[in-house]
């Protein structure tokens, strides 16, 4: 039997306003054939956080058992140390490096629905990057944060150096044709939930931006507008959409 078509996905990113592209410290990675998707958010008060976030997303994709974080975390930690520990740095960068890098991680595994069995998603998270499933008609389910007021300034984060592995939050759910899965780092996830709580249709708004002819420009305009007057905190932004539309499933 031929392998199933890969899932359809789109991702858009922006650095914090006032920062350059190379100061963006979120990360994302996808393996649509295997149905694995991840976003991560490097804690910007730590050093080499963007690289750590990237290593985490890649490790989630390639892990044998992606939900078993304690099994696969050692490898990205080892790689992070190998890349940064020998660098000659001024006193402050050296001290920050000693403290390690920190990041929030959300990893999602997706099984497409078929004629024989329903689709399913499984998610693992440390911190406040969110999976938001939007069903046709606008019904929404969010993980691991459920409400816009759940977000704080000190989320649980994964450390690159020696810190114990926090117990990840886990969830799973059914995936139906037409469902959209949004993976978003915290600022946009919080806006998304707040908009929904106010009766808005953030899923439709986000999907139309992601499908625009010039999606990068549309995303930049949309985010700039939300930052100016729409209640979006100024932070790095990553939005990854996995679609299970009738055409894709």
């Amino acid at each position: 039997m031929a392998p199933a078509d890969p899932l359809r996905w789109t991702v858009l990113t922006l650095p914090k306003h006032g920062c350059s592209d190379d100061e963006y410290e979120d990360a994302w990675a996808v393996d649509p054939v295997r149905g694995r998707f991840a976003v991560a958010d490097g804690a910007s008060e730590s050093s080499f956080a963007g690289r750590w976030a990237q290593l985490l997303t890649e490790a989630f994709l390639t892990a044998d058992r992606s939900n078993e974080m304690a099994e696969w975390l050692e490898e990205p930690r080892r790689r992070w140390s190998a890349e940064v520990m020998d660098l000659e740095l001024p006193w402050y960068a050296e001290t920050k490096r000693e403290q390690g890098a920190y990041a929030a991680l959300l990893g999602v595994s997706v099984r497409r629905p078929s004629a024989h069995r329903p689709g399913k998603w499984r998610a693992t998270a440390i911190g406040d990057s969110c999976l938001i499933r939007v069903r046709q008609g606008g019904r929404l389910q969010s993980f691991p944060m459920h409400k816009s007021t759940d977000f704080g300034n000190q989320p649980r984060l994964l450390g690159s150096r020696g810190a114990p592995v926090p117990k990840p939050d886990r969830a799973s759910g059914a995936l139906r044709p037409g469902d959209r899965l949004f993976l978003a780092t915290d600022a946009l996830a919080q806006w998304f939930l707040h908009s929904h709580e106010q009766g808005g249709r953030p899923g439709d708004a986000a999907a139309s931006v992601l499908s625009a002819a010039d999606a990068d420009a549309a995303f930049a305009d949309w985010i700039a507008g939300l930052r100016q007057g729409g209640g979006l905190r100024n932070d790095d932004v990553t939005l990854l959409l996995v679609e299970c539309g009738p055409a894709a499933c």
Binding site: K16, A43, S44, E45, S46, Q99, G100, Y102, N153, Q154, P155, R156, L157, G159, A163, R233, N234, D235
Partner: peptide
Amino acid sequence: LDIGTRVAQSV
């Protein structure tokens, strides 16, 4: 002081 960044509680 919030400089728009976040940091793990252990840092």
